[in-house]
């Protein structure tokens, strides 16, 4: 797998192939390929974030605000059964209508943002801390450590993501922490590979060599010289990673394997609640409102994430 000591040509090729594989986790590839008739992504264009980006950011900020303060905001009680009649269409009282148990779909959708964003945020932070640390250490020290870490990543990536998640959630109590950790573990390998790859790039630059010549200790070099440079590409991909994590949580919830309990409202759970044929036929709004909100949120994460990725010109190392 990953080479021994220095990167052989072959090692590099297979590593690149490995890296390319993980682009799929990024969901979206660069929306702009090289221009067919001339130079590629142009600096000025790249450095402009655009209206779409700010729209996406506004949506995300609003959702984050709602997620943080939902219990304090004037929403109906999301768990109250029979708030009004069951399966009522949207009205002035219940904007998104009510579900099969007569619960307010609007309020539930807003509360659903809590788990989705909490899990998404925690997972990506976990992935960045653990994966980032492992990746940097592997990339800096190379040798056996690198091989071991590389192999671990490879094994982690050998599970289809959702299957690995199921394996973990199947055996443990499905608390918020367990679900977040599960999805965080999914993020470790892709983020780790990214960190390792950018460490390899920077570890060979002059400033690192200079620090070494000046007698700086490894720890200092890693924290002072490498970390800041590796954090940029990692940070540029945070939102894209979050998008993946939110979808993963949704999938688990859809299968009834996310955070357990009636109190734990999640978009995935709401969608599966409304996805029965009769509900879908007669009370389409029960499933479609959470579908729409989730879609817009994931789209916003992807879109803003992709703009940021372009802004920082993170290309080949994308996961």
């Amino acid at each position: 797998m990953s080479g021994d000591g220095r990167p052989s040509r072959k090692g590099r090729a297979s590593r690149q192939r490995l890296l390319r594989r993980f682009r799929v986790f990024r969901l979206v590839r660069s929306s702009k390929g090289p221009e067919p008739d001339g130079p590629g992504e142009n600096e000025a264009v790249r450095r402009r974030l655009g209206v779409g980006f700010w729209l996406a950011v506004v949506w995300l900020v609003v959702m984050a605000f709602i997620a943080l303060f939902a219990p304090m905001l004037p929403f109906a009680d999301p768990t109250k059964v029979g708030y009004s009649g069951p399966r009522e269409p949207p009205s002035a009282g219940a904007w998104f209508g009510t579900d099969a148990l007569g619960r307010d779909v609007f309020s539930r959708t807003m509360h659903g943002a809590r788990i989705s964003l909490a899990v998404g945020g925690f997972a990506i932070v976990f992935g960045m801390v653990v994966g980032g640390a492992l990746g940097i250490l592997a990339g800096y020290f190379r040798g056996r450590l690198d091989q071991a870490v590389g192999f671990t990543f490879f094994v982690l990536l050998s599970f289809p993501a959702l299957v690995l998640a199921i394996l973990i959630t199947a055996t443990l109590e499905r608390s918020l922490l367990v679900v977040s950790l599960t999805i965080g573990i999914l993020a470790v390998a892709p983020v780790g590979l990214l960190a390792r790859a950018s460490t390899l790039v920077y570890a060979e630059r002059e400033f690192v060599a200079a620090a070494r010549v000046l007698g700086a200790r490894n720890g200092r070099i890693i924290v002072r010289e490498l970390l800041p440079n590796v954090v940029i590409p990692m940070g540029a991909l945070t939102l894209l990673g979050m998008a993946v994590a939110v979808v993963a949580e949704g999938s688990l919830a859809f299968l009834g394997l996310s955070v357990a309990g009636d109190e734990a409202i999640s978009w995935g759970k709401m969608i599966v609640d409304g996805a029965g044929l009769r509900d879908l036929q007669n009370a389409t709004h029960v499933a479609m409102f959470p579908v729409a909100v989730m879609f817009v949120t994931v789209l916003a994460l992807n879109f803003a994430g992709d703009r940021i990725r372009q802004y920082f010109d993170v290309k080949e190392l994308a996961f």
Binding site: L27, V28, S31, K32, A243, V247, G250, S251, F254, G268, I271, V272, G274, A275, L277, L280, Q281, T284, A287, M288, V291, M294, F295, V298, L299, N302, F303, D306
Partner: peptide, 26 residues
Amino acid sequence: STVASFGLLSIPNFALGVVLLYLLSL
């Protein structure tokens, strides 16, 4: 098609399934 694929990539599988089921089948 750039816009379309961006959209398609942002729909979680289960959401797309439910939407397709509703539109094309029901």
